[in-house]
Design a protein around this nucleic acid. Structure first.
Length: 595
DNA sequence: GCCATCACG
DNA sequence: ACGTACGTGATGGCA
């Protein structure tokens, strides 16, 4: 059979410039690892990464052995205008997707798209089955180690192939009327470029030992396509009655605040105006952020009202009318999900951001008739990953014995004996310390955070004392941070890495602590999603994925079975990444999105 | 277009 | 060691 490759580009590629250009070019005293040891390390990971429930789907190597086929489709105003196919022995451009229906469905032909989740979502939504596909966007993200920079087909074609793709033709204005030869030429050029990029990237990924990373992402891609398609039902009528109360209260507060501050036209949504007004009123705020205002709440009633007002405006502005307009005709909210949305390869979602819905709105996300949501989340997963990475004796011991880590930390920093009880305030402090110091929080940051959460403020020296006590207990964490600062090679538990010559190392020291943990967590979650997709019943559908949480929508009668299965997938998937620390999953179910 | 702010993890 | 905890998306104000 002939080799083909299917490529598709969308005309709405979004590029967000990164603004963080911190340059910390400290002497990276080549700590331990050079590239050779890196590769050895990654190979070891590769061997260890075994799915617990079932062997993985097709691996990337298997896919390469197949015939390759490429399509390029140009969506226009939400529709695919043309689809072009470029392969070694097949090249075509057509307005009728039916012409490639068999090709899309053929498991023996690998389809290559640029930004596959977009195209496959469209195709499946329009009744085309798409089997065996891969994505040059994800390949580019893996090779660049950047999620949103330099991954457009245009840029890649330019830098990797030296080809100028004229993207101007993709503009809607250029597609009015008949399809001309000119159109076809450009469409085919995109497909050809994608085909060539694919071949180039395949080689590079293999050379850099990133096959397991690519496999993991591609295997999980069906999950976000499903999220794109399914959406999640939202009861706006119910939410609206909540909004109405908020609107009334907000209007009253606006009036009260303006009158108290003697400024009848004051815009309370303007930080500049509010700050000036409060100064005039005799309150020396340094800003108008909530944690700043909180310090003055006890002294001034006006601050309490202002905080409430700001909270209400946030809900109303971001999740009111805006949300209503996002609801599809079938009553469901559909986001635009990305598989590798962040540089740590966490997933993201926008328009609307279903990963950022406020807790107060969650009860209005409702399962369809006869269905129930299963909401499962990992318990303290990032701290468990920290334990796995650092092998810190105390952390490992705490998790293996099932000890409450926040209590443990609190007991130690407060110098409590083993039999002395830990108050809820002390545990709260323990929690802040655990989460904050993992990422290199300083004494200033720690003081600020603790003071924002507690009634009685602490002094800087106290925060400093907590910090030293923490590192006294968890010496492995200190050693890890020290290592990460100096290292010129940073590795995740699943085989991603940052090093000179392959990708940019994270710039700031703090990002160096955080990247391996957040990335490893994302890797484990994707392994879980793959396990889920492999063996779930078709009636168990993904409704949302929020970093450490998976929400399913399942028939009422299958809640128990699906819950157990999901839990097994989540523990098994994370277990591919985290091998020595036990993984715990909390699982709930309800007719709405329970917290 | 950038900043400050705040929703989520 | 950095610059004061990481990663996002969305909003309104402001220049």
């Amino acid at each position: 059979m002939d080799s083909l490759a299917i490529v598709k580009t969308n005309y709405n590629v979004e590029l967000i410039e990164s603004k963080i250009i911190l340059t910390r070019k400290k002497e990276l005293t080549s700590s331990t690892k050079n590239i050779a040891t890196a590769i050895a390390q990654i190979s070891r990971h590769k061997k260890n990464t075994v799915h617990v429930l079932e062997k993985p789907k097709k691996t990337y190597k298997d896919i390469l052995a197949m015939d390759i086929e490429t399509t390029h489709a140009t969506p226009l105003l939400g529709e695919i205008k043309v689809i072009s196919v470029y392969g070694k022995d097949l090249q075509l451009v057509t307005e009728d997707v039916n012409e490639v229906r068999h090709l899309l469905n053929d498991t023996e032909v690998l389809k290559v798209f640029h930004n596959a989740s977009f195209d496959v979502t469209w195709l499946r939504t329009h009744g085309f089955s798409v089997k065996s596909y891969t994505d040059t966007l994800v390949m580019s993200q893996i090779l660049n180690n950047h999620a949103k920079k330099g991954n457009s087909l245009k840029e890649i074609a330019k830098t990797k192939l030296g080809v100028d793709l004229n993207k101007a033709y993709q503009h809607a204005d250029n597609w009015v009327g008949e399809l001309t030869e000119e159109h076809k030429k450009y469409a085919l050029m995109d497909a050809k470029a994608t085909y060539e990029v694919f071949l180039k990237f395949s080689k590079a990924i293999s050379e850099k030992h990133l096959d397991i990373v690519l496999d993991r992402e591609i295997n999980a891609m069906d999950a976000i396509i499903e999220l794109n398609m399914n959406g999640i039902q939202f009861d706006y009528t119910g939410w609206e009655s909540e909004l109405k109360d908020m609107e009334v209260e907000s209007t009253q507060l606006l009036e009260t605040l303006r009158s108290t501050l003697s400024l009848p036209t004051l815009n309370l949504q303007s930080p500049i105006q509010v700050k000036a007004a409060l100064h005039e009123f005799g309150i020396p705020v340094e800003g108008t952020a909530d944690e700043v205002l909180a310090k003055f709440e006890d002294q001034f009633a006006v601050i309490k009202e202002l905080r409430r007002y700001k909270k209400l405006r946030k809900q109303l502005n971001s999740y009111g009318e805006k949300l209503k307009n996002a609801i599809d005709s079938d009553g469901r909210l559909r986001g635009n999900w990305k598989l590798c949305g962040t540089d740590t390869f966490r997933m993201t979602c926008k328009e609307p951001n279903l990963q950022g819905m406020p807790g107060i709105s969650k009860p209005y996300f409702k399962a369809r008739d006869g269905h129930t949501f299963i909401v499962a989340d990992y318990s303290t997963i990032e701290l468990r990953i920290l334990a796995e990475i650092t092998q810190d004796k105390e952390l490992v011991q705490a998790f293996q014995s099932g000890e409450d880590l926040h209590n443990k930390t609190a007991a130690f920093v407060f110098g409590k004996g083993s039999s002395e009880p830990i108050s809820s305030t002390e545990r709260k402090v323990g929690k802040i310390i655990n989460f904050g110091l993992v990422y290199g929080m300083t004494k200033w940051g720690l003081q600020k955070k603790i003071n924002a959460a507690l009634d009685h403020p602490i002094e800087l020296y106290e925060a400093e004392a907590f910090r030293s006590r923490y590192f006294e207990l968890y010496q492995g964490v200190l050693a890890y941070q020290d290592e990460m600062i100096r290292s010129d090679f940073i590795l995740t538990l699943g085989g991603r890495y940052w090093t000179e010559g392959h990708c940019m190392l994270p710039k700031g020291a703090i990002a160096r602590f955080n990247y391996p943990i957040q990335s490893s967590c994302a890797e484990g979650l994707k392994e879980s999603l793959t396990l889920f997709l492999q063996d779930r019943k078709q009636t168990w559908q993904l409704a949302a994925v929020v970093h450490d949480e998976i929400v399913l929508e399942v028939p009422d009668s299958e809640v128990k079975e699906a819950s157990q299965f999901l839990k097994d997938c989540m523990i098994g998937g994370m277990g591919c990444i985290v091998k020595q620390i036990p993984i715990e999953v909390d699982i709930n179910h309800a007719k709405y999105w329970v917290k």
